[in-house]
Structure formats: C-alpha cells, structure tokens
Amino acid sequence: MLTTERLILRPWRDEDLAPLAALNADPEVMRHFPAPLDRTQSDALAARWQQGIDERGWGFWAVALRDGGEFVGMVGLNPPVLVFPFSPCVEVGWRLAARHWGRGYASEAARAALAFGFGTLGLDEIVSFTAVSNLRSQAVMRRLGMTRGDDFDHPALAADHPLCRHALYRLGRIAAFQSPA
C-alpha cells in the first residue's frame, strides 16, 4: 500500500468492483481505449490486476481518497504482457473516474508509484504510453517529468484502427530524482 497527501493506493477489494465497472463502462473514460468494458470484463481486469499485486507485491492498485475512502480509480506499475518495440519494460498507468479528473489525482498517485518503482524496486526506467489522441494523459506524463520517445503502433490493434498509433513517454531513474516533484 502507498499513501500520498490525499490518496491511498492499495490492493483491490470486493467493494471496488462496482465503481470500477462504472468507470470502465463510461464512454468518456474509455474514449482512448478500443471499447468500454461490461461488468464481466471489468471484474476480470480487476482480478488480473490483483493477481499481479499478489504475485509481485506491486501492480495496478485501486486508488481511494484518504478522506472518506471513496474509490477514485486505478494507478500503478505494470510489466505489460504484450511485446512492444521497447519491451521489456515497466509502465506507469492510470484510469480515473471522470468526476475525479482535473484535481491532480493522477499525477499525485503516479508520482508515488514512480517513487516506489525507482526507490523500492530499483528500476532504471519506467515508461508510459497512450493513444496519440489522448492529450490529457500525455499532459500527466509531461507533468511527471517524462519525455516523449518514438511513437509506435499498438500490437493489439489493427493498423487502420483510429487508436493504433500510440505515444511513448520515458522516465529514467536519474531524471526522476532531478525532476521537480
């Protein structure tokens, strides 16, 4: 479990499944993903995320407000299963309920995940990637001190899919400790 000034990053609980399903079914939240998820798909995703935490001790954590415990979304670190042009790697990622956008939660939680990845895990580099159309997430990546690398085609999407082209951002351990927090 990680904590920040306003947030808790923790393992998944049964009570997280309904708000996660609502988040994953929201067309606005899922605009830069191939499709919204139904409840079964969302529950399976949460189970995979928790399995990663169980196996490694870290992963994509559930995020809740410290004040009141309201579920916010998901933030954390993950070694992608798919093979990318920059594999092997560990990514930092996030997905928050739309009502929590614009409050700095993604940046705050991602900074905690990055600190864990570089400090506790001793990673040399952490990446993040998103569809080139996802300007909000790219802004978070830049706020985290990440720099844009080479764009690439996502291997799980057809070449003519509108979300196929992805932007890659990178952050090395040395740069992370030199970046303003």
Score class of each variant (00 low, 15 high):
P79F: 03
E55Q: 15
G69N: 07
D43H: 14
G57D: 14
F60K: 03
T40L: 06
A62H: 06
L65H: 00
E70K: 00
R39A: 14
V81R: 15
G68N: 07
G68W: 09
T40E: 10
I53C: 03
D54P: 13
D67N: 07
L82R: 04
G57M: 13
L45M: 10
R48C: 13
A64L: 07
G69I: 06
G69L: 12
Q50L: 14
V81Q: 13
R56H: 13
E70A: 15
G59I: 12
R56D: 13
Q41M: 07
F71K: 03
R56W: 13
Q50F: 13
G76Q: 10
V83D: 07
D54I: 00
W61K: 06
D67S: 02
A64T: 12
A64V: 09
G52W: 05
G76A: 10
G57S: 12
F60R: 02
P80D: 05
I53R: 01
L45V: 10
G73R: 08
A46M: 03
E55G: 09
G76M: 11
E70L: 06
V75P: 00
S42Y: 03
G52Y: 02
L45T: 06
G57A: 14
G76W: 09
W61T: 03
A44R: 08
R48F: 09
D38P: 08
D38R: 02
L65S: 04
A46G: 07
L45C: 04
G73S: 10
F60C: 07
D43N: 11
R39W: 14
A44C: 08
A62G: 11
P80C: 07
W49L: 13
V63T: 06
A62R: 04
F60T: 01
L45Q: 08
G52F: 04
R48E: 13
D67Y: 04
V81K: 11
G57C: 15
G69P: 09
G69D: 07
D43E: 15
G68E: 06
Q50R: 12
A44L: 12
A47M: 03
P80M: 08
W58S: 02
G59A: 10
S42D: 01
P80H: 02
G52I: 05
M74L: 11
A64C: 14
G68Y: 11
A47G: 04
A47T: 14
Q50I: 05
Q41P: 01
E70S: 05
L45I: 08
A64M: 04
V83L: 10
V72D: 03
R48P: 02
L65K: 04
A47C: 08
L77D: 00
R39T: 14
L65E: 10
D67K: 03
A64Q: 13
V75R: 00
